[in-house]
Design a protein around this nucleic acid. Structure first.
Length: 827
RNA sequence: GCCGGGAUGGCGGAAUUGGCAGACGCAGCAGACUUAAAAUCUGCCGAGGAAUUUCCUUGUGUGGGUUCGAGUCCCACUCCCGGCACCA
């Protein structure tokens, strides 16, 4: 592929120079920088604030096409709103802590700090070449002490409010990254979100945040305009179930503990024929009948060896063993055998279930395998007593075999049974969530240290806020050993207890990097604040992000954590409002031209720098925006040549010395098209439909080319159309727009101009072409006055040859006329 | 299994409320300009047919339906993508 740029003939008869994007792009980027064009004031008396943000990049080394795909249209959107009279904040920064820095540093034998700083330098330059309106005065770097001091501050607030706690817990352990992971970071069939290794389980003391405290509120999406798919993902992840916790007495006078289970189907309580505990359930060892202890032990050991992935496989055949113990059904006192089986998860509900094989497929399969009784208590349609089920019946129906509850509908019975157990202290109504607390401990080096000191006498002591930041020591051996690298840094670890002064030890785990990105959008609004992460003036000016953009792969990670942080921040009086991101738009993912994910091994990586070198930033921006709907993503298209041709035509048009040659009546039509284009582009950019906005601009360009040839509109109208075109282009292709704007004699930047307004009166038509259908098939098209009545149109239609022929004297049964749309004659 | 989204020419895609399917662009074909190429400009471009500047038939994943009229609404299904998954 050879670049057409810069090889245009110099001998052409054109009166202007050629379009050289690289030259003008550099020129204007420097100029904008010099005049601080994109510095955003905290407020502006004449322009309401509007906050746009796009997810900040991880400084991996090079800006890749995914960054462009996410950020270039985001910039167009921010610029569009800026031109529409808002004081738009559109900041940029770097999410700089995290494993890749550490891994790269280990590979290259340099410090993660060095690697990160170099990458940020490089990527900042690449971002500047994008020509976006980023306000660089507010740039943040989450790995700088000025920033992570406040990440630590957030930890302390969570700790002081009882929402951060440390506990020995089974955690997801990535053997390759040598660190624990949050549930949200384990993807697919139990693999690490970062390195794609299979994740195992490991028990160790870990710090967690009680995101579960906010589970209910996190399900309230009422203040948010988000894609439905992302809301449903969060909803599924939070996983609310309503039901009851029911208490079963153990049938053994020596045991005082009761067995508690969670069920969403208290209506099926009379159908319980056995109980199942998870193998790890703490009650197992207490209730076990000694005769059975050997096989129970063996089963527990076996299931501990089975990986979490295998255990959660739905196709795996269910296994279990009888404990020899029984409990009593609280409704009727029936003796119910207690089993253990690993299809019951220790980590959900109470880690124990009441099994109702007739109405739960899993219990049904288990009962069949171990020949346990199956008792129907909800009658399927046309079911007769003692008829055996083929599978569990989970549908609606009325209760049978359920004493006083018999013949109630299942949904009524749920309420009645809950009332019954509550009034008899046999259980309570209960809402259960699937979401677990957020595990934030990482046993790696390149993260913010957790500001906690462990003292033998005082226990877990928070660092004084005045002592922040707790700086990450630089002289540390950070090779992954499974042990926190900070634990080897003696100077760091050994400190006096802030409480009693006795020798104590610092916490040596670092924080999950998702903590850094949970609050970063506020820091942009108040980047220099030295007393708070964000001050009250800033939250007043910028209470929330009005428009957030970024990939949906963060649906249940970043986007959920940030909502949790915001609600917590509100509750401690630091933040305003209920949500961090009022509008969120998830752009799709760009793939290689082969439709596969871009990767070096596949050799299908499209390098943005090369494209910019060859075609220019403006062409690349417009090309990305023109490829298709932003939310779809898809294979990268090679067709940037089309955009390049178009911009070249714009260049020629705007540089033309236009003079009118023919007096005509085309001016009305011409102005209509210009105004229609203003209307379409305004609508489309507002809807983030960049591809159709560009199509409309191309149509206008084509029409202008024709008018340039025919030279039959006034100079005034011509100039108006060119200015309109440049203004409409400004958010999409900021550099060529600026160059041509200034060449037209304007002294101020086009990016300080207002968005053009549609002249509605120019859109009014006196005549319109409408199709004439016979039985729904188009037979003719006729011009009619826009205010024509049905009768007029029908008479006009009848006079056309095609309609006359098609009617062939048949009587007209019916006429449908849609004003200014169509006429359909039914015969 | 559950939740969400999708399927339109050779390709990317367009189509306010049910109202002319295929805008805009790529690729392709033909032409103008040119010594030539690039650039620029013009025309053609879903399929089949009539023997062709026009007209007919057909056509938006499949099968039904509603309607004067369906890419769009309803029912059933197939395939693809994303998420969750023994969650009681």
């Amino acid at each position: 592929m050879k670049s057409p740029i810069g090889i245009f003939s110099m001998t052409s008869q054109r009166s202007h120079d050629d379009y050289q994007p690289l030259v003008i792009e550099k020129k204007w980027q420097d100029d904008w920088d010099k005049q601080n064009l994109y510095l955003t004031p905290d407020s502006d008396p004449n322009r309401p604030n509007r906050y746009h943000a796009t997810m900040l990049p991880y400084p991996s080394g090079d800006l890749h096409i995914g960054h462009w795909w996410a950020m270039a249209p985001s910039d167009m959107l921010a610029r569009f709103h800026r031109m529409n009279g808002y004081n738009v904040l559109f900041p940029m920064g770097f999410d700089a802590f995290g494993l890749p820095a550490e891994n790269a540093a280990i590979q290259r034998g340099i410090h993660p700090q060095e690697w990160t700083t170099a990458n940020i330098e490089r990527m900042r330059g690449q971002l500047k070449r994008m020509g976006a309106m980023f306000d660089w005065s507010r740039e943040i770097n989450t790995s700088s002490p000025d920033y992570y001091q406040w990440t630590q501050w957030w930890f302390l607030q969570l700790f002081k409010n009882g929402l951060a706690y440390r506990t020995e817990t089974l955690a997801n352990w990535c053997p390759k990254c040598q660190t624990t992971l949050a549930n949200e970071q384990v993807v697919g069939d139990g693999i690490c979100e970062r390195c794609e290794s299979p994740v195992s389980q490991k028990s160790m003391p870990q710090w967690l945040f009680k995101i579960t405290e906010y589970a209910e509120e996190l399900l309230d999406f009422s203040d948010m305009e988000w894609p439905n798919s992302v809301l449903r993902m969060q909803e599924n992840w939070i996983g609310k179930s309503e039901g009851a916790e029911i208490l079963f007495e153990i049938d053994n006078p020596n045991i005082s503990e009761v067995l508690s289970v969670f069920t969403t189907r208290p209506d099926t309580l009379y159908g319980v024929t056995f109980m199942v505990l998870a193998p790890e359930h703490p009650l197992v060892n207490d209730i076990i009948n000694p005769e059975f202890s050997k096989q129970i032990k063996r089963y527990q050991e076996d299931s501990a060896r089975v990986t979490e992935i295998e255990r959660q496989s739905t196709v795996r055949e269910k296994t279990g063993v009888f404990t020899g113990a029984y409990c009593l059904n609280p409704m009727n006192g029936e003796k119910v055998p207690i089993w253990i089986a690993d299809y019951v998860l220790a980590t959900y509900g109470t880690g124990a279930i009441m099994a109702v094989p007739a109405h739960d497929q899993r219990d049904f399969e288990f009962a069949q395998k171990y020949e346990l009784p199956i008792k129907v208590v909800i009658a399927p349609e046309n079911w007769s007593e003692n008829q055996e089920l083929e599978e569990a019946y989970t549908g609606k129906g009325n209760l049978v075999n359920s004493q006083e509850f018999t013949s109630l509908t299942a949904s009524d019975a749920i309420t009645k049974v809950i009332e019954h157990v509550e009034s008899n202290n046999l259980g309570t109504k209960k809402t259960q969530f699937r979401i677990r607390d957020w595990l934030i401990s990482r046993q790696r080096y390149w993260g913010a240290p957790i500001p906690i000191i462990h003292c033998v006498d005082c226990g877990t002591v928070p660092v004084e806020e005045n002592d922040l930041p707790i700086k990450l020591p630089t002289e540390v051996e950070f090779l992954p050993t499974g042990q926190s690298p900070l634990s080897l840094a003696e100077k760091f670890v050994n400190v006096p207890c802030p409480n009693c002064g006795a020798p104590a030890k610092r916490e040596t785990d670092t924080m999950d990097t998702f903590m850094c990105s949970s609050w970063y959008v506020y820091r942009y609004t108040d980047p220099a604040n030295i007393t708070l992460p964000v001050g009250p003036d800033a939250t007043k000016n910028w209470p929330a992000v009005d428009q957030y953009t970024g990939g949906a792969e963060h649906a249940v990670m970043h986007l959920l954590y940030a909502r949790f942080f915001h609600k917590f921040g509100r509750d401690i009086g630091v933040l305003r409002g209920n949500e961090p991101f009022l509008n969120y738009f998830a752009q799709g993912q760009v793939l290689g031209t082969d439709g596969q994910r871009m990767s070096k091994s596949r050799g299908n990586v499209v390098a943005p720098d090369e494209i910019v070198d060859q075609w220019g930033t403006d062409a690349f921006r417009a090309h990305l925006a023109f490829m298709g709907p932003w939310e779809n993503g898809g294979p990268y298209s090679e067709g940037i040549i089309g955009i390049s041709r178009w911009l070249n035509r714009v260049w020629i048009l705007a540089n033309s010395d236009y003079s009118q040659k023919n007096i005509s009546s085309r001016d009305v039509e011409f102005l209509r098209l210009v105004n229609q284009t203003i209307q379409r582009v305004t609508h489309d950019l507002g809807e983030k439909s960049f591809n159709t906005a560009i199509a409309a601009l191309m149509e206008l360009t084509n029409a202008l080319s024709a008018s340039r040839e025919s030279r039959d509109v006034t100079v005034e109208n011509w100039n108006f159309s060119i200015k309109s075109l440049l203004l409409l282009l400004a958010p999409i292709t900021p550099h060529i727009s600026e160059e041509l704007w200034r060449r037209s004699g304007e002294k101020k930047s086009i990016h300080l101009e207002s968005w053009p307004v549609t002249d509605e009166s120019a859109l009014i038509l006196s005549e319109i072409e409408i199709p004439i259908q016979i039985n729904g098939k188009v037979k003719a098209k006729i011009m009619v006055p826009t205010d024509a009545t049905e009768d007029t149109v029908l008479e006009l239609a009848k006079t056309t040859d095609q309609v006359e022929k098609a009617l062939a004297g048949e009587p007209i049964k019916r006429v449908i006329y849609v004003e200014n749309r169509l006429l359909n004659i039914v015969i």
